[in-house]
Design a protein around this nucleic acid. Structure first.
Lengths: 186, 186
DNA sequence: ACCTGAACACCGTTCAAGT
DNA sequence: ACCTGAACACCGTTCAAGT
């Protein structure tokens, strides 16, 4: 079949999108690629690494041009980019969140956020970026986990849980907090 | 052995604390209780439910008296309670985060937070509580995941990642945002 | 009420061997 | 370089049967 790393990541994302993270196994990915499970280990050392590569790909697929304008608009635009990218694939936020704990996946987004906060004190830019990233990640994963739980009938659906409105409200709160510390003329 | 539900949850928390979430299996919990795996299903319908009960217990063990004083001090005290409770057991934050997606575990904490924000508009109190809870949960899980990843040598340690300082900075940002919307005299 | 013992349908990963 | 086939040491869950 002559698969390459890119094909493996692609196949894994197809399995993720159709079956969900719960059923994403190396054996299913192998079946998707019409290959034996052991063949995957030629491309990837373990499942964890595959998940990290999937996280990067999820974010890369939603990548947009770097936003311009005032810092708060830029931050909001970046958050929308990340959120849209993660929501575009089933359980995408959970995959990115898991990978980000290992310093992968969400590291680049967090750096883009702190670059958008370059006018602030270094400490504020760093913890501001981290706070925003935790919010975006947590909000999107809570939405997708709730979607999955309510789809299987384990819970009664609640449309407010990961809504765009609640996202804007929460992000607005953090941005207001940042404005409080904004350097003059930013 | 005549175990009761409480013994099962207790045993599961012992396994969690000594082996971590990655190695928390029904079979290990059974071994901890010196019982066959199938015996657990007399007390609990499945692993997911057990995890939810563990999340509740983790938070219950750290429970403190309801704080008094100005709203921002109360919110900070609650956040410290939740953070301390989750950090007290290995991978505790991850367990609570997972369970909270199913409307369990973190629901009660979020309600206590929104009660502390009772002076605000309903919408603000609700999304403020949610934003804070996502931050506390995300911050604590990122710390514990990083601890685990760096303990196994998968990553170079970074003490700043879940530090109390970065926690205070991030929470301070959200509280500043809320102050911006504070009703007069709150 | 609480538990055993055996089974079913899965996992991730390794490794010798093939082309 | 990429893959097969077989194996190892595990999973969660079910179910008849025991006390």
């Amino acid at each position: 079949m002559a698969n390459r790393l890119h094909d493996v990541v692609d196949g894994a994302l197809r399995v993720l999108d159709t079956h969900g993270l719960e059923f994403l196994s190396m054996r299913r990915v192998a079946a998707e690629l019409e290959v034996q499970p052991s063949a995957l280990y030629h491309h990837v050392p373990n499942k964890q690494t595959l998940l990290a590569l999937m996280a990067d790909e999820i974010l890369a697929r939603g990548r947009r041009d770097e936003p311009t304008g005032p810092w708060d608009k830029r931050v909001a635009a970046l958050c929308d980019e990340f959120r849209t990218a993660m929501l575009a694939v089933r359980d995408g936020a959970e995959v990115v969140a898991t990978a980000s704990a290992f310093g992968l996946g969400a590291a680049a987004p967090e750096q883009r956020l702190s670059a958008a906060l370059a006018g602030f004190d270094e400490d504020v830019a760093v913890s501001g970026a981290r706070t925003i990233m935790l919010f975006v990640l947590g909000h999107a994963s809570a939405r997708q986990m709730h979607e999955q739980a309510s789809a299987t009938g384990a819970i009664e659906p609640d449309d407010s849980i990961g809504s765009a409105e609640s996202f804007d409200l929460g992000l607005g709160l953090i941005l207001s907090g940042l404005r409080t510390l904004a350097p003059i003329g930013a």
